[in-house]
């Protein structure tokens, strides 16, 4: 991934900034230009709470080429306490914690790098709490 493509999303990947539709209140993560619920086009920025719960999960045992070194790794759909849902890796989980309903908190982690000499892409992973 080129560095501008990664950099563009720092407000979300680093700080969990969401957009709240001023018309209907729906919280969008990532932000959008038009609300898919009410078609509103005005938003305010909100930093989401870092906590949520697992809605579904898996363990990816064969990763894509840029994640080949990390396999196997756990992934989940997480519903954040502020409403939006995200897909992210689950890190540092113990037996019994990769389950539907498990509470998690997002932590700042390396997601992948562009080889030993390329940029490092950081973002969020869910850690059971």
């Amino acid at each position: 991934m080129s560095s501008p493509r990664s950099w563009r999303h720092y407000p979300q990947r680093y700080r969990y900034e969401a957009a709240v539709c001023t018309k209907c209140g729906k919280v969008h993560f990532p932000p959008r230009l038009i609300c898919d619920a009410c078609k509103g086009r005005e938003f305010t920025t909100k930093t989401m709470a870092r906590t949520g719960k697992i809605l579904t999960h898996t363990i990816v045992r064969v990763g894509p080429s840029n994640f080949a070194d990390q396999s196997p790794f756990a992934v989940a759909v997480v519903e954040m306490d502020d409403g939006p849902r995200i897909t992210c890796q689950v890190a540092d989980w113990n037996q019994g914690q990769l389950t539907i309903g498990q509470k998690v908190r997002l932590e700042f982690r390396k997601i992948y790098d562009e080889g030993a000499s390329g940029i490092i892409n950081y973002g969020y992973k869910a850690v059971p709490i």
Binding site: D69, Q89, A91, F108, R109, K110, I111, I120, Y122, K125
Partner: peptide, 12 residues
Amino acid sequence: APDQDVITLAVE
């Protein structure tokens, strides 16, 4: 862990 470095530890 492989996904932790000085930056991630410092941020937390």
